[in-house]
Design a protein around this nucleic acid. Structure first.
Lengths: 248, 248
DNA sequence: GCGCTTCATTGACAAGTCTCAATGCGCGCG
DNA sequence: CGCGCGCATTGAGACTTGTCAATGAAGCGC
């Protein structure tokens, strides 16, 4: 077995001793991208055999805004945040990506946001050239790519809607509701979130203090519990929905 | 000549007397979609010959959130707004589309936002089934579709960033800057915007009053002029940029 | 376990935005 | 031509959120 999972986000699909990137070698390309695109096999795949599995440690940068956009990624484990930093030092998180979701798939010369690992992350990486190659004459893959982009777009539109008219409390409530929708734990109402308060605040377009206060409010109303930093329990789903919709 | 441009947004590419929609007829499909996808020919095309040209009057609904998503559109003349309405009656405008831009191209069963004509609008309409048909075996078109979606996504991300951390004045400044970037008039700094103050406010996630005050502020600083309701003149581009970036 | 560091929470006050209300302005219609 | 209507602008006060500062809680290395 020649290839192993990377320890910390270094190139795995670039051939170690040649200037030519590995994705032009058919074997890697085919295997890597098939796994990348095929949701069913991605989960149960033998990681050792896939040349594009990468690991990133907590807070590691996966790519930076402005970098040449050479790869797309699919989350296997952990969570990834896409963000932009502003001149005043504040950060806006544009989107989160959870297991099975794909990011960096848009069509632009350069990445328009920075991608970072929220906690430790395992992701599949696929060169765009490889995807483009597979796309030709394969309407299925082309379709999947469209579907992924569409999903990101509609998430972004929801996000815009939230930032545009919801109060702090409503935003926090909406955020937990959205997480509950795509919960990965098996207990209803139990959310395991790898995000810090700062991450949440930056996603919601609030300061960390305002986010905290909204959280405390919800706790006081017995709508949620926060037994530990990274765990939220929804005790009153209907109440949470009411708050998210603005029914005080 | 059997077909004419529609007066007010009714079906044009559905065969009048048959249950079968017209887009399965190759001629219409091919012609309509070629014009739809090909930017160069769209502008100079004989409208009379294209079966998918539609007109919408000011404030007319092009499609509603929740409708079955059967068509994509390309703006020829005028401006289109994509918006969502909330329980409290407030409206968030998610995006604007100007001539040559395409909307409704995402991949979802139902439209996720409502599309309306800002002023009078001329648009090309293409059934998605037709696009899908053309996409197969035509990587060029597939690529263009990806590019359009990508553009919408990056616009949405910019929008999120704006709503998440900019002040009222910064938002207004950024908005005019963005318009200047894609100006359609030939005079530098002269913006012809078909939007009402309410449209602008709903896009920026502000109330109409706050938007007005920001505008008046910019006028007082001699950064812009507003000689008439629907016209803005940028008198100090650098100053506008500085404000948009937060340098007071 | 202890101290250190980082993150989370709470409080008091300042600043920005929204709400409500009044006024101004432009435009079409009777 | 003036009237009414819709849209835009301005003002005053209430409310929400941000800022600054202090305290509390949790994780980690020694």
């Amino acid at each position: 077995m020649q290839r192993k999972v990377a320890e910390t986000g270094r190139d795995l699909d670039a051939h170690p001793s040649s200037g030519e990137p590995a994705f032009v070698r058919p074997a890697v390309c085919e295997q890597g991208c098939r796994f990348f695109m095929d949701e069913a096999s991605a989960r149960k795949s033998d990681m050792d055999k896939v040349g594009v599995t990468m690991k990133f440690v907590r807070n590691e940068t996966i790519y930076s805004k402005g970098d040449e956009a050479r790869h797309s990624y699919k989350v296997i484990e952990g969570a990834v945040r896409l963000s932009r930093i502003f001149a005043d030092g504040r950060r806006q998180i544009v989107n989160f990506y959870l297991p099975d979701e794909t990011f960096g798939i848009e069509l632009a010369e350069e990445y328009t946001s920075t991608a970072e690992a929220v906690g430790d992350v395992v992701a599949l990486r696929c060169p765009r050239a490889c995807i483009a190659q597979l796309t030709e004459g394969n309407p299925d893959i082309s379709q999947k790519r469209l579907a992924m982009l569409s999903k990101s777009l509609s998430a972004a539109e929801r996000h815009v809607a939230m930032l545009g008219h919801q109060s702090a409390k409503e935003r926090v409530a909406s955020f937990f509701l959205a997480l509950e929708m795509q919960r990965h734990t098996d207990v209803e109402g139990m959310l395991d979130l790898p995000l810090s308060r700062q991450d949440i605040a930056d996603y919601l377009g609030l300061t960390i203090e305002t986010t905290c206060r909204a959280l405390s409010d919800l706790k006081r109303q017995k709508i949620i519990d926060a037994p530990s930093r990274r765990r939220i329990v929804i005790r009153d789903l209907a109440g949470l929905q009411a708050i998210a919709e603005g029914d005080v």
